[in-house]
Amino acid sequence: MGIFDKIMGGNTLYYPGCMVKFVMKNLQDNYEEILRKSGIDFIKLNDLEACCGSPVLNAGYERDFKTLAKKNLDIFKKHAVKKIITSCPACYKTFNKDYRELIGEEWDVEVEHVTQTIYKALRKGKLKIKNPEKRTKLTYHDPCHLGRHSGIYEEPRKILEKLGYEIVDMKSSKEGALCCGGGGGVRSNFSELSNAITKDLLEEAEDTKTTVLVTTCPMCDACFLQGAKNSKMNVKELSELIIEKLE
């Protein structure tokens, strides 16, 4: 975006979130490509931006959370960020709910989860995908931060359908979807407990008789990938399925 646009409309920031930026780096490349192909003009702030603060707030470090939010608010202002697109459900929820709660009026940034962006682009025909040859069955996991916390259940499902997949829901899905075991700091603090929870979910996924488990959260993805070593499920993050089918 040029200086003029910046002043007029502000910038759109792609915010991958720490999980994607530091651990699941391939997802960042995927989403950047998808966004570019969707005709989205976005900026990146790389190491200028800080962690959104989700794990910090969840662990009870209120002061540090405020410091991070302030730091991000300043940097977003400096770069005229008017809209954030993020591929992490936890960051989405944090910017959308917790920042709004903490900062109030001054937080006038529109926040979008990447599945909302992509679904719009698909609908408007801006993002083109190869015609699906046959409908393959898979199952989709609703990440807690995207589903129950934010009410986004449909966009990821509709994207998958447009890609030519048929979703077989797990016994517990949407509002009742199980937890991957990764949230609230449980993965890092109590790994055995977290593994047990991941296993419960993978078992439900196996019960669908499909072989692919797709999610759209880097934390769920990481938990499943680690847990799937002993499971029949083939774990995918949504962007991987989109990339395969881009024209």
Binding site: C18, M19, K21, F22, V23, M24, K25, D47, A50, C51, S54, P55, V56, N58, D64, L68, K71, A90, H145, G182, G183, G184, G185, R187, S188, S191, P218, M219, A222, C223, L225, Q226
Partner: peptide, 25 residues
């Protein structure tokens, strides 16, 4: 990690590996 480098993982994430301590969410 957060206080020194602004992200929960700090400096010790290895390329292409999911670390044991997934400080996130």
């Amino acid at each position: 990690n957060i206080r020194t480098s602004g992200n929960p993982f700090g400096e010790d994430v290895k390329e292409g590996e999911i670390p044991d301590k997934l400080y996130c969410c």
